[in-house]
Simulated scan of single mutants.
Amino acid sequence: MGLSKLLLVFSLLLLLFSSFTEANGLKVGFYAKSCPKAEAIVSKEMKRVMKLAPSLAGPLLRMHFHDCFVNGCDGSVLLNGTRSSPAEKDGIPNVSLRGFGTIDGIKEKLEEACPGIVSCADILALVARDAVVLTNGPFWEVPTGRRDGRRSVAIDTLRNLPPPFFNFTQILNGFFAPKGLNAKDIIVLSGGHTIGTSHCSSFSNRLYNFTGKGDADPSLDKYYLPKLKEKCKPDDVTTIVEMDPGSFKTFDASYYKNVLKRRVLFTSDQSLLEHSEARAYLQRQIYGSPSEFFKDFGVSMVKMGNIQVLTGNEGEIRKKCAIVN
């Protein structure tokens, strides 16, 4: 294919991408006129936060994922609940989320610069991108224009967030496909586990009671298993473990190498080896540069960020992310 044809194909892809995002009411540069420094403010605050607490990168990336998968990318994961009406952040899959203070702080800065303009849902999307960039990962353009939802119910998290003990097929059919995401999106977004940590309780069944008979998961690397048992005793709910050992503060492709070595924490991670497309992808990450993964990650993040968005006159622009107006 000649250079002119390649350029034509690339231009058509950009046009299709632009049409897709704008069809959802989102577009890159949505705040160019209404709050031109919005992304710069987010970036500046994220640089400050990452210097003080670099371990927040993983949780902030995860927060965007947990927001989008529960009733769409509407900032509902940020809302506070009550004793009688627990919110998403009170749901079992979300009780370990961290970084809400970071989002609140960024929102305060944006409200000072542009009152009532930038949604909390968009802040989550921009923060997730910057968390990746600031851990040496890829940059991607984030389409914005989301508005904030008013519904936040704890039980919705159990229905919409894939448990770490599910396998590839269960995650694809039960959680990703219904939201318009495919097998490749699972493979690529799982790579986000290259940064961050997990509580022992999220994978202790693989160490002590995999089949209900007090046994360990035989798919775990025999040298990795005793190291995990050293850190995580039975019924430990407080200790945290690196998801990408030795590289949990750097966004890279080493997670995929650990999957192949059977040195990952979750059944959902290990089950990538059950899928032919995933296995091929893992192999390419070992012998190639991370450029494919970096490009794909941005594409899948944009795709995920389009799930059930509120735009136009839907929802609201919250003044404070933790409470509805």
Rank of each mutant, 00 (worst) to 15 (best):
L3K: 07
K5G: 08
L12F: 15
F20Q: 10
T21L: 09
E22F: 11
G25E: 04
L26P: 06
K27S: 15
K37N: 14
K37L: 13
R48C: 06
V49F: 05
L52E: 15
A53G: 06
G58T: 03
R62T: 14
M63E: 11
C68D: 00
G72A: 03
D74I: 01
S76G: 06
L78V: 10
K89H: 10
P93C: 10
N94E: 03
N94L: 12
R98H: 14
G99F: 04
I103Y: 05
D104Q: 13
K107S: 14
L110A: 02
L110D: 01
A113L: 02
A113V: 00
S119Y: 07
C120Y: 13
L124H: 06
L124S: 06
A128S: 15
R129V: 03
T144Q: 07
R147I: 00
R151V: 05
N160I: 04
Q170Y: 00
G180F: 10
N182M: 13
N182G: 12
A183K: 14
D185A: 05
S190C: 05
S190Y: 07
T194I: 02
G196A: 08
H199Q: 10
N209F: 07
N209D: 11
P218Y: 00
L220P: 03
L225S: 03
P226D: 10
K227Y: 08
P234G: 12
P245A: 01
S247D: 05
K257F: 08
K261R: 09
S268E: 13
S268L: 08
D269M: 11
D269K: 08
E277F: 05
A278G: 10
R279I: 04
Q283T: 12
R284P: 08
Q285S: 11
Y287M: 12
G288T: 01
S289P: 07
K295I: 02
K295L: 06
V299T: 05
S300I: 01
S300Y: 04
K303F: 03
M304V: 01
M304K: 01
G305C: 00
V309H: 08
V309K: 05
T311H: 12
T311F: 10
K320H: 14
A322H: 15
V324G: 12
